[in-house]
Design a protein around this nucleic acid. Sequence first.
RNA 1: GGAGCCAUAGCUCAAUUGGUUAGAGCGCUGCCCUGUCACGGCAGAGGUUGCGGGUUCGAGACCCGUUGGCUCCGCCA
Length: 595
Amino acid sequence: MRIANRWRTHHCAQLRATDVGRKVRLCGWVDRRRDHGGLVFVDLRDREGVSQIVFHPEEYFEAAEIGKALHAEDLIQVEGLVARRPEGTENEGLATGEIEVVAQSVRLLNACLPLPFPLDAVVENEELRLAFRFLDLRRRRMLENLRLRHRITRAVRDYLDARGFLEVETPILSKSTPEGARDFLVPSRLAPGSFYALPQAPQQYKQLLMVSGIERYYQIARCFRDEDLRADRQPEFTQVDLEASFAEPEDIQSWVEGALEKVFREVVGTDLSLPFPRMSYREAMDRYGSDKPDLRFGIDLYDVGEIFRGSDLKVFRAVLDAGGVVKAVNGKGLARIGAAELAALEEIARGLGGKGLAYIRVESSGWKSPIGKFLTPGERDALALALGATEGDLLLFAADQWQLACEILGRIRLRLADLSGEPKEHSEWKFLWVTDFPLFAFDREEGRWESMHHPFTRPRSEDLPLLEEGRYGEVRALAYDIVLNGTELGGGSIRIHEAELQQKIFSILGIDSETQEQRFGHLLKAFRYGAPPHGGVALGLDRLAMLLAGAESIRDVIAFPKNRHGVDPLTGSPAEVDAKQLRELRIAISGRGNA
RNA sequence: GGAGCCAUAGCUCAAUUGGUUAGAGCGCUGCCCUGUCACGGCAGAGGUUGCGGGUUCGAGACCCGUUGGCUCCGCCA
């Protein structure tokens, strides 16, 4: 890195014993000052690191006077001589620890007010950190997070470039398609009453690029969704978005695996073993009660319906007779948990819509359980065998429709892992492809079918007859999600490229022909002009960076994130605008607050 | 829209069962200190305990409300 110019000759992590005697000039912030009355030391910091500056009052009085008066985070320019530190005062913990710069002159370039929070300690007050984000980003940890993110995108770009992917930008001012998340809208001045929408993803544009014959496209794409925020959700976020023509799911998956392998090798020095395991949606739900199972621990769900098929336990029997399932999970060693914890587990079940959560404490004195008296010795033996139950275990049961029973125990499983102190090492990377998602999910409240992934997802060809027969819930999609340690890192699919099939899917989703033409006419039109088969995937860059950084929130890997309410406390966005601006847009505010 | 947790000095936290003048470390200010690197020493400033109400002889603590922050559910094709 070339750095020398009139401001500075080196950066603060650059100088070594071989530079002793050299006259240098450094610029940086006062990381720490140690004033010995006479002698003053300053750790001078820039992006690259730290050098110790020493002020000798007898030799360089004026410089020392300035040095004495410095404060934390003052910005200074120092000119001086590189000197070897006296025998025994070297600092082995510092790359530049063999030398120091003897200040001959120093300029205070810009002073710093007393800091609102320390830069070298944990600060819980995130609101304050965001309000002073420019200072927060000076912290080593945050700087390294940004650097890590940079390295990720660079590795991804290198990888995809080497495989013939073209980076193409797509519009930010886009068109609203009311399916999916809520859109951010941008009013058009030139067409009053009309609005652009910020893209939730470049989905349709990248498919159009495939029709254009681009063949392999990628983009580090900003996406916008106007939904409530979470630790891993911001209203604007970034996806590594790619699409390829003439590609099978295996092609897409191997590109993702290859890119991630390169990222992990180059960014954190970890070798991933490829390919990642695959698991069908059905199996993931059956075994782990989740479509993004965390495989760092091995608590499995079991179907124990057969054991209760002839049971006296009416609640279980009724569910089974109605076509439901009885599933169970074994919390090894958790018979010890108290009533409050147990109630919390039941609350998880109820919160999801379950009727309850049966439990059995396996204790030395016998099985302690409200359902205990309904169990025959044979049933107990069968359960113990199926669940591997031994003394001290806590068995939990959900009896419900398959989907719900799985989801309930899936949540319980995560909670049990916490309770039992299962190791969840950040350095352990458990990747998984979840495949064969259902194409549709039935929305009970709306009383209609919805796309599980999105409406452009291609059904498996062998399931096309099911589509004709109206057995929508059974149709599987050529879709795949990539999961890392229980986090959905991304997902993709092979797309529909035929106008007729696309129209059929739209119709099943309850979008009539007129609306189809209105909202998706451009896509349907394009499909009639020799659209190639194609598919792709999108990876959540923020989440990937968060996991690699060992951060708790994607806010820690985004330079200027929004808080819980979509507000940036630093700039004060969003903000009201001038009446003149609104007039130009022909917008009238009808009311504030509970409008 | 719902649930939970939190709010005490600039920051991170403490304050026994409701009981004297709300403390500590860091930071800040002043003084001392010539080989430190989380330098050290002495002194000092800094608080309407988020806000409003209530219970009580007495509230940082208990109750109600409210505001703000965070986490989760809903939502996120």
